[in-house]
Design a protein around this nucleic acid. Structure first.
Lengths: 148, 148
DNA sequence: GGCAGGTCGTTAGCGTGCAAACGAAATCTG
DNA sequence: CAGATTTCGTTTGCACGCTAACGACCTGCC
C-alpha cells in the first residue's frame, strides 16, 4: 500500500528531472516554470498573489523571482499606489520562451504517457485529482493558505 | 496534456508534506525515510550502495546520513577491510521507529486514496509503473547524452 | 617498493521548497 | 495626528535533491 507512495516519489523525481532538463535548454529552470505559467497569463502580479495561485510559500516566490531577475526573465517594480507591493513583470526574453517551453513540456508529457492508452490517461488524471482533493482534508494541511 | 504534469506536481507536494508531517512525529524526516526503509532490511550498507538502491546521488545519501547521525538514528563505521568504505548502521532508536513510521505511512496512503476504488488504485499503480518504466528512455536520463 | 590510476566518501555550491523573524509601508485607532 | 496593528516583501536558516571538485584509500603495473 505504501508502495504507492514510493512509486509516486520515483515517478515524480524522473518527471521533474526530465522537465528541468528539457526547459533548461531554453534558459528556464523547473522552479521558474510555475511562475512563468501564471505570469504569461497575467503579468504584473505580486509575490503574494503568485504564492497563493501556485500554492507555494511567499519566500519561495521571492527567491525564485530573484533568480529569474538575475536570469533576465523578469523585473521588479514597486507599486506606485501601495509602497508595500512589488509587481513582477516579464521581460521579452521570458515571453519568447513561452512557445518553446510549453512545447518541451508537452513533448515530455506525451513521452511519459506514451505507453498508456487514452483511457488510462483519463483514469490517471482522475485519480490524481481525487488525491489532491482528498489531501485537502489531511489534518495538518488544509488549515491556512490556498484560496484560489 | 501538460496539465497532467501539473497535477502530478501538486499531488506529490501534498503527499510529501503530509508524509513529512506524519513521520516527524516519530523523529524521522521525509528524506531519511528512504534510507531507513533500506537499512531496516539490510543494515551496514555503504553510502554508495544506498545511493544505487535508492536511485539517488551519493552526496544526497551522505548529507542525509550526516543529519541522521546528528539525530541519533545511525552511526558511521569505517570498513576494517577497505578503508575507503563507510558502513551505515542503524541505532536502536531507528529500529524502534520502524513500526510507527510504517504505520503512519500506511495511514497516509490509505487516506490519500480513500476515495478511489480498489480498481482505480490498481490502475494508478499500473500507470505510475508505466511512467517510471517509460522515463528510463528519456534522452538525458538513462544514458549519457552526446553532443547534439 | 613506489607511483599512476581507479574507487570511494566528502565538501562546495546551486536550485527549490519550507517556517520564522524582520523591516517597511499602509491602515486602523484613540 | 501619533501610535499600534496589519500587511506586505525580504532575509535567514533549514531540508533535500543535484553536479563538480577534492582527498583518502586501494589496486595494478613497473
Amino acid at each position: 500500500m505504501t508502495e504507492l507512495l514510493r512509486l509516486f516519489t520515483r515517478a515524480h523525481k524522473l518527471l521533474r528531472a526530465a522537465s528541468d532538463e528539457a526547459m533548461s535548454a531554453h534558459g528556464v529552470r523547473i522552479g521558474q516554470n510555475l511562475v512563468l505559467e501564471v505570469l504569461w497569463q497575467t503579468d504584473g502580479l505580486t509575490p503574494g498573489e503568485l504564492a497563493g495561485r501556485l500554492q507555494v510559500s511567499t519566500p519561495t516566490v521571492v527567491n525564485t523571482a530573484t533568480r529569474m531577475e538575475a536570469a533576465g526573465l523578469l523585473v521588479r517594480r514597486r507599486d506606485p499606489a501601495d509602497g508595500r507591493l512589488v509587481r513582477l513583470h516579464l521581460t521579452d526574453k521570458a515571453r519568447e520562451a513561452q512557445g518553446p517551453v510549453e512545447a518541451a513540456r508537452r513533448r515530455l508529457a506525451e513521452h511519459a504517457t506514451a505507453t498508456l492508452t487514452e483511457d488510462e490517461r483519463r483514469h490517471l488524471r482522475s485519480a490524481l485529482e481525487k488525491i489532491i482533493e482528498r489531501m485537502g482534508s489531511w489534518p495538518a494541511q488544509g488549515a491556512d493558505r490556498g484560496t484560489d
